[in-house]
Nucleic acid binder design. Structure first.
Length: 268
DNA sequence: ATGGTAGCCCCGCTA
């Protein structure tokens, strides 16, 4: 049986609840991973999602900032979330899907504007978060285990994951040090980029467009910050990937759009 | 070429 997993930085789940419900109705993913929910757990609109068929969930939210959630039509087991860099700032949740697939949903720190860990503590935090994630994978990874890692990783690793490789080399999200650390994470877990699996590396691909552009579609200065990765046991089951660019044009949109991957999870 | 917008919830912080 095929499973569709979606990831979306929603930038306030309460403000955009109707939009998310519409998305779920249209695309019917089995599992939706959200980032930047910006709601404490008591304020999370769990009931609306349950009524839409997403009865299983793990949510980790805080006031004003960050916040992640997994909403699922399928039962979730072994749910939880890790604390990174000693901050309980709601940037990670995990769950096990039917078939024993371990799903991890990340919201990696954006890192501020200045790409220097000495001058900018937010950038230092981002780099430390990446190192911790790598070390955790080196400790915990089991090469034969089916795993999915999704989220707003706040890094566009490839040349054509940004509108101008040259002009963004000094811009946080595409600097060589961040790309190197993300590549280390990818190697540490044997991850396969499930979206680039279907889209050649020489083709431009974005999942985020700044709010600050006068006309986001016309300028099209996007970046691919949102990712879905899988471990080798799931590679042969990959069926399709989609980045829902049109969602950036919806009324009062998030600056990120949904990313979806469908795979055969080996469930009988 | 530098500033532009959005969300939170208390007016600055983060993105």
């Amino acid at each position: 049986m095929a499973i569709t997993v979606a990831t979306w930085n929603i930038n306030s789940v309460r403000l955009r609840l109707d939009m998310v419900l519409r998305f779920l109705q249209e695309k019917r993913p089995d599992v939706l991973c959200l980032q930047e929910t910006k709601a404490i757990d008591d304020a999370f609109p769990s009931k609306a999602f349950a009524e839409a068929g997403y009865r299983h969930r793990i949510i980790r939210g805080m006031k004003s900032y960050n916040g992640v959630a997994i909403l699922s039509k399928l039962p979730l087991e072994n749910v939880g979330g890790h604390v990174w860099c000693g901050k309980d700032d709601c940037r990670h949740v995990f769950a096990t899907l039917p078939g024993g697939i371990e799903l991890h949903n990340f919201y990696i720190p954006a890192g501020g504007d200045i790409p220097d860990p000495v001058e900018n503590t937010k950038f230092a935090h981002k780099l430390a978060f990446l190192d911790e994630t790598r070390d955790w994978l080196l400790r915990e990874r089991r090469p034969d285990r089916p795993m999915i890692l999704v989220g707003d990783l706040n890094i566009a690793p490839l040349e054509h994951d940004v509108w101008s490789h040259k002009q963004l080399l000094g811009v946080v999200s595409h600097t060589p040090i961040e790309v190197e650390k993300l590549t280390e994470i990818q190697a540490a877990g044997d991850w396969i980029d499930a979206v680039r699996h279907f889209v050649p590396a020489d083709q431009k691909l974005y999942s985020w467009w700044s709010y600050r552009a006068r006309d986001w579609a016309e300028a099209d200065r996007g970046r691919r910050l949102d990712h879905i990765w899988v471990t080798p046991p799931l590679k042969s089951g990959l069926q399709r990937a989609e980045i829902l660019r049109e969602a950036r044009g919806w009324t009062q949109p998030s600056d990120h759009v949904p990313v979806l991957v469908t795979l055969d999870g080996g469930i009988a």
